[in-house]
Design a protein around this nucleic acid. Sequence first.
DNA 1: GCAAGGTC
Length: 892
Amino acid sequence: MNYRIAPLGFQLNLGNQRKHHSHSAMAPLKVLMVAEKPSIALSVASVLSHGQMHTRRGSTEVHEFEGMFCGSHAHFKVTSVIGHVFSVDFPAKYQDWTVTDPEDLFQAQVVKSESNPKAHIPRHLSQEARGCGHLVLWLDCDREGENICFEVVQCAGFHVSDGKRKVHRARFSSVTEKDILKAMDNLVEPNKDEALAVDARQEIDLKVGVAFTRFQTSFFQGKYGNLDSRVISYGPCQTPTLGFCVQRYFQINTFKPEKFWTLHPHILVSGYELQLDWERHKLFDLDVAMMFQKLVVQDGILEVSDVSEKQENKVRPSGLNTVNLLKVASSALGFGPQVAMQLAERLYTQGFISYPRTESTAYPSSFDFRGILGALAKNPIWSDYAQNLLSEGYLKPRSGTDVGDHPPITPMRSATEDMLGNDAWRLYHYVCQHFLGTVSLDCKYVRTKVEFSIAGESFHCVGQRVIVKGFTSIMPWLAISEKNIPQFAKGERIEVSKVELFEGETSPPDYLSESELISLMEKNGIGTDASIPVHINNICERNFVQVQAGRKLVPTALGITLIRGYQCIDPDLCLPDIRSFIEHQITLVAKGQADHSHVVQHVLQQFKRKYTYFVKQIDNMDALFEAQFSPLADSGKALSKCGKCLRYMKYISTQPSRLYCGTCEEVYYLPQRGTIKLYKELTCPLDNFELLIFSMAGPEGKSFPLCPYCYNSPPFEGIDTLFGASKTGSTGKLGKGAGMPCFLCLHPTCRHSLIAQGVCACPECSGTLVLDPVSAPKWRLYCNMCNCLVLLPQGAHRIATTRERCPECDSTIIEVDFNKNATPLEDGATLHVGCILCDALLHSLVEVKHGKSFFKRRGMGGRGRGSGRGAHRGRARGLGKTVDPKMSFRDF
DNA sequence: GCAAGGTC
């Protein structure tokens, strides 16, 4: 159900509009406003309607109210999209990895499809725009927002240069009443160049990323058995991100520790024992260090050569933006960026903190500090501090930078740990501390440095005395450590009590911390506040790096080998400049200094050259892989026989699990995340491959047979729902791990097909209940479409389907062979044949249960939006009908 | 099965 934009997609029925227009003289003007997300639509509508609006639900909420527009009475509707409406992809003919040469992708057409087909945003906009004479765009004021403007214009059926139905762009620098009203008075036109720059980036990122990813994935996975990553991905953001981690690894690995020595004279003055530091800091030559030690000992008297006192200022923080929140979350709270953002998102939707995705560290001038301080004053943890700021006068925060997106992240209302739960509380706690810090005094302290000379060498000691704690009293980990030293007078002479010769060794840096990585990414323009966590997560998921204790990022052998490979073929590929280059090129488009398609063509041409060179030189990278990984032929252990050459194929258990036939040099992917075994040396009647039995993980995990060949190349037409297809919403495509097990096979006579093993219709969906052949002694049926389970009679040592059908309901008749001592049958008989629906005995012994989700679904931990189940219904029906009896559990 | 960017 992917929505493809036709050239004239979403043009409204103009006839309809004209009709509305002809009435417009008397009917009120209708104005549609669209924001980037529901929260902004709400804010805009609240301000413009003075809180007097009517809200109704839809794909996204619509707020309606009456007001004035362009000097006339108008009916307003304010709604929103949910980020980008569309995203780019290749047309279907390029989707099959096996038939597309990645090099062709550089010239391929790209198509836009709905980013989130379930949300029906285009339909929503098109409906709401009906009859509206004006469209006001309240999208975020950045390039992406400008691009979404044009997506909205298109969906709404407007045209930017239309005399009749006008398009307006609201430019606002914050979502405050003042800015919203100001934007309304200064409506402009959306900026096409900025939008085109985003189109350019999308096309470049897609083509470059996908071409390299497909090539290197196919190349290396076709050769090595223990790569342990489903996809060996490449991307202009993720690869330089990996590069940073590996660079640090190299530093550590090539580090040569060196011994060094330093002198610390000690003195005893007015009851203090002080250790002085050497101006030379350290020496790497023991003889020389000992010589200095001797000189100092021989002299024995230090003269105070200078005493300086300076008042220092440690400045309070500026407003908290996303990147800084993520850094603190990782380094101080131990939350990874993704977790931190989830927590922040939840705090935001619950109204405890402000919008958590912002680059700005400057507060808008109208910011209500007093209101927030008042809220925090109600919280026992901060009440004294906040009260004090309110009565003594809080400071205006430092200026910071204003990117024009959202204000810094602040608390919005008071909360307790009980209300939030521990993790969210800790994040919230920090946001409060940071906010209070920004409106507190700077920390002031006096730093005293006393310098000494002896035997021509200089030593010193430093004392620190805090005068004003300021913000450090609410952010105590930033406090200045006090250090008292006695009074010294210039020219004073002091006896040395001892001279310590300290021996130390230089040590390598630690692995890159997540927080350092975020800083590096930000500094180098890799990713955005929202996408930085995604890139970090990507390189973890692809098994290029692992997060270890203290949130340090340790590259894996795969990650290291990849970067070393890029470095010997084309180092540009893993340097951050690759992103800056793209950004710089598309900025030319944004500024109107270069033509969109020229820039895209130019950049793609360069990347295509890099791609062909990379392919040509891949042997250099492969040499590194060869040294690190084992060839497919050496990997895995013999499992089952190939139907073509009749030799054993090897089972490679590392992800993606698969079979490899060394003689035919063929790879057969298997279902993922479960265990696989030979199935009684049975073979597939279609291709002679030995059958395997796959068991899904967990105690409720179902088991099913499959033929490795059929699984990868389904033999019958019309099987469009595959097991393990990753996108539950779209048609199941063959991919690694997705395929056709026997329970979907329509073979009319094979003992393992759906025809033979299917028993009756699923009571929960349109699927078929199939006998789990290895479920003894807890015999059961499972649905081949959903997660329904049916428990069969206990205490049977064999249960099998027969070729007979129930004359009543057309279910498959099953044969149950009960254990001698557990048989419910009279006279100790063990064999019973019947229909599980119509046979009184069998029916009394079966029980419907639900198991774990049957189809692979990612992100189960989420809020469970949009269960994938309904999506299978329509498609399944055709399949079910051919074998399903008319009656099922539903009818009982 | 691929990118990066919005946002949920």
